[in-house]
Amino acid sequence: ISLCVSMGVTQGKNFTGVKEFIFLGFSSFGKHQFTLFMVFLNIYTLTLAGNIIIVTITCIDRHLHTPMYFFLSMLASSETVYTLVIVPRILSSLIFHKHPISLAGCATQMFFFVTLAINNCFLLTAMGYDRFVAICKPLRHTLVCGSFGTGLVMAVLQVTAMFNLPFCGKVVDHFFCDIYPVMKLSCTDTTVNEIINYGVSSFVILVPIGLIFISYVLIISSILKISSAEGRKKTFATCASHLTVVIVHYGCASISYLKPKSESSIDKDLLLSVTYTIITPLLNPVVYSLRNKEVKDALHRAVGRNIS
């Protein structure tokens, strides 16, 4: 990442001496920034607490040593680091306002954001597949490694292409180093970068959506073969939480990264970014797991064991 930044600064030396970026973030909200700070802080605290509980309870309770909870713990771990990369700086900027970030810091933040966002996309795909079949342990590990490896490769590609650009501006009209807001600051033609980013976005959004769709077609066809109405209802209920997370996650991602540039709006982009960086990570522990009966039972067993 540092090498990419150094190359970008060297190439852009004749244009500008930009060595850091400043986020505009939520500056337009004026006196409401402290309110936003408290809201985001509470959401972030709940997200961290929920994800830590999921990972801990999955590790210590043998009843949860199943493929489903293996994926949930991996998603919870990924979401924890994902929010750690973005949210603390958001909270800091709401208090200290124009808080600068170096080019190296921006590249690092973008690298981890892209890696973990893509990792989450493919983990949700694997979890959709897991709803249809029981996955053996070796395949489980292969899917998780594949998800992270795909995110890593795509992040290297995007960040390298981005920070080889020369930059003329230093004010990012956003609250973190997202791809398109940073790209707007370049002094040169960014057509190649736009093609790369659109290609990566299409791959990591449309391919998982297609695979999840196939999984649910198979699930529905299996549910329809169940003779008992109660059995059909119970089987489909196990998919409801996953579908909720999938719809919100991919819905926001599709609107943010696949829409035409002509339809871009700063306020709408900001709202969408808040949704997929702050609100969506809360869905995993709250909607996906902590309302799950098996997780509640595991928590009761853990609390009871500690009291004894």
Rank of each mutant, 00 (worst) to 15 (best):
L143K: 05
G146T: 14
T142E: 08
L123G: 02
N120V: 06
I118S: 13
L116V: 03
L123Q: 11
N120E: 11
T125S: 09
F132C: 11
L139G: 04
S147C: 14
T108H: 12
M110R: 01
F111D: 00
N120M: 14
S147E: 07
Q109C: 09
C145V: 06
C145N: 09
C136M: 11
F132S: 07
F113A: 14
A134W: 06
N120Q: 15
F132H: 14
Q109Y: 00
L139F: 09
F112R: 07
S147M: 03
I135A: 04
G128W: 02
M127C: 08
A107E: 00
D130Q: 10
R140G: 09
T108G: 08
A117H: 12
Q109W: 01
T125Q: 09
A126I: 02
Q109H: 04
D130S: 11
V133A: 12
T125C: 15
Q109D: 04
G128R: 01
A117K: 05
F132W: 14
T108L: 07
L103V: 04
L116M: 08
L124Q: 11
T142V: 12
C145F: 15
C145Q: 11
D130G: 09
L123R: 04
T115G: 07
P138A: 02
F112G: 02
D130R: 00
G146E: 06
L103M: 14
F112D: 07
N119L: 15
L116K: 04
I118R: 03
L143M: 09
V133I: 15
T142K: 09
C121Q: 14
V133Q: 12
C121V: 03
C106E: 02
V144S: 08
G105I: 05
L143C: 06
V114G: 06
G128P: 04
L124E: 02
S147T: 07
F113W: 15
C136S: 12
M110P: 01
Y129D: 05
P138Q: 12
G105D: 12
